[in-house]
Design a protein around this nucleic acid. Structure first.
Lengths: 228, 228, 228, 228
DNA sequence: CATGAATGAGCCTTCATTCAT
DNA sequence: TATGAATGAAGGCTCATTCAT
């Protein structure tokens, strides 16, 4: 009787069995609830949002919510997961995951990543608001998830840096992990700034941050990107 | 029998009118309530903290709370103000506010500031937790206060950068404001990292971040601090 | 299985849209809450009554109350409105609203009105208790509503008196408004007396008051109602 | 040292032992508390008045209140007693308590009484507000006290009426008690009206009410007071 | 399956009263 | 004796969750 097997959906979901019409509708509403919850949480805050707000936004009965999600706490996880999928897939689309072979290539890669990341935040600043300002306050677990996410990003960056050191275009004495954290922080700051000043030009910020990151305060970004 | 006016000793307390014994006790309890609220909010979150939790922590009746603060929302402002005072006074103690005249002097200043700031966060990571993770979620107003604070820090840093440009030890084409934001972000990341990993060595982080800030990824910090 | 629209039967209910079963149940509970609130307020006083008392009397959860009424203050208005509807409809049922053409006819009308009014109060003295003794103490607004009600009654009576003067069966120099107030007062006194002495014979009171009203202290009520 | 003995107030106070200076001050504050409570209760309602409001009005600590009165409930009794003393003494001053021998004399007496009573209410409408609108809502006991007071007034009036019947200037078949209640009601209505319309001319009301009372609706008040 | 009526735990807040100073 | 700091019972109200329809 098992209606099939496993793991449909989830970003890299392997093609699962075809969903019946009813299942597809169910999945659609599920997604809509996640979206509506995201909007509400980002706009009014987690504690300022009632289940009824979410339901009202969709024009469904608020009892229906509980046929799709365990409880209020439950949905935040899904919202965040959904947001991360959005972010990750946006990044994946833009960036070749290849490890860059030269400093110049790495510089370009960082630029692509930073630009993509901040573009997402510019498009919908509610993402940053929910992820950075709401989620950590809900719960110890969610706080851990957010800090874990930040750590993971740092670790990812650190991997690139370690690669650069191994290949030789980055200095051997680079403290890769802490440097990665600092780079991370620049992105964080960009995202947070986007919240305050929605009309800002994140491109300029990226340029300034990349310059700081690649040549430091004193250096200048020559056309060829060399640092001297 | 002398009423003994002397020493009301608050750190930077401007000389005020001498406080009566009752007034001193009142001020003391007020402070204790702020402290207890801080602890509760940082540990259990704003919404997870009841007035009764705060009162219980102090062993006072919860009605007493309302003799000192308007309501639950009221005290968060006081807690935050108190924290900022702590931070500011710690910074003020460590740093000569003089604008540095050379790049090396500026480098030293940034090091002092960063070290002082992260030391505070290391000492009591709950400060960062409340300021960065709890406060923005409470209220639109508090979110604005936190983002305003971050902006103010960026503006402060930008001021130093502009000075460096004017004096000549920083490049004329430096995007001072955005660069300041990026620098800010490094500090933010340091503070957040301190939350996750309380036993971490924030000194190493400061070194890595300063290196990134001053010479960029490719550069090395030679003993004399020169960048080439 | 037919949904059966018919008979929503509220006494003088104007033909409205047919109510669904759920709507009828809702309206019924609403009414029950009003009734229970009335009982509680009349018996234990407004301030002596908790929302939980009202809910307990109906065997419902106290949260349910708030699904039907905004707050505690809100329901008093509804209770009072409901009471006034009861009173007004009772009066309307008994009395032809025609302006009487002769003194004798007016005398009969006053008797009918007074009797009807005091019968209502006799039947349920809590009406007077709530209206006269509780409501004015709740609020400046409710005090105004009660005094406004008394004024309106006086104005109504004054209208009749003015008619009598115009038609000629009442003296031209009658101070209609103040006289109306005094007549009003007799009814008030009757209602209040009914509170103290629930077993009293309000018929006798009406006779005495009508006699006073129509012939004064010295006169006698001859069979034909003449005054001499 | 005795600073004089005499009549330390209290209307019918039997001459007691001379009070010391401290005792007199105590008695004075007691009286002030009663007055302040009266003002507060009349203006903001019993439940709207806090002990601290009363204390604040006098500029005393609110703990002091409890050195003079048992509790909040306690003082209402004192306030009411005090008000009744004021009313009674005002009436006593104006009226010979002699039973009138003729209808004309009784008419004059009723006029004096009604005028005096309504003058008091005009002077300070808060008396009526407290007595009629606040007191009955506080408590079953206070409700009983107020209705008892009204009854007592009716009984008093009935005594006069009975006297009139006995002496012969009132008809033998007069329902003295109910008639007395109706007369009472006129006064009540006058007092209540005074609350609404503080600028009103209570003299006119008294005239109209007396006319109604003595000659009824149809009659006219000829100079000699005869009714024909 | 969708709905929304019902529920009650839980929280903030007030204020009469006590009592140490 | 006067004071006001402290107290905690009490109560209004919200909202996440359940479940009968």
């Amino acid at each position: 009787m098992a209606k099939a097997t496993g793991d449909q959906s989830e970003v890299g979901a392997a093609v699962g069995p075809p969903l019946s019409r009813a299942e597809r509708k169910r999945e659609e509403l599920r997604r809509e609830i996640v979206d509506a919850s995201f909007s509400c949480f980002a706009e009014k805050g987690y504690h300022g949002t009632g289940i009824s707000d979410i339901a009202a936004r969709l024009g469904i009965g608020h009892g229906t919510f509980y046929r799709y999600f365990e409880n209020k706490r439950d949905i935040v996880d899904h919202v965040i997961t959904h947001l991360l999928e959005r972010v990750v897939s946006a990044l994946a689309a833009e960036n070749a995951p290849d490890a860059p072979a030269t400093l110049a290539a790495y510089r370009e890669q960082t630029e692509r990543i930073a630009t993509a990341l901040l573009s997402i935040m510019d498009e919908d600043p509610r993402i940053a608001r929910l992820l950075l300002f709401q989620a950590p306050a809900i719960d110890a677990e969610l706080e851990a998830r957010v800090t874990g996410l930040i750590d993971a990003m740092a670790e990812l960056t650190a991997g690139y840096l370690r690669h650069g050191v191994a290949v030789g275009y980055l200095p051997a004495d680079l403290d890769t992990l802490n440097t990665a954290r600092a780079i991370n922080g620049m992105i964080l700051a960009g995202a947070i700034h986007g919240l305050n000043d929605p009309g800002h030009d994140s491109g300029e910020y990226v340029v300034a941050a990349l310059r700081l990151m690649h040549v430091g305060l004193g250096g200048s970004m020559s056309t060829d990107g060399s640092n001297n």
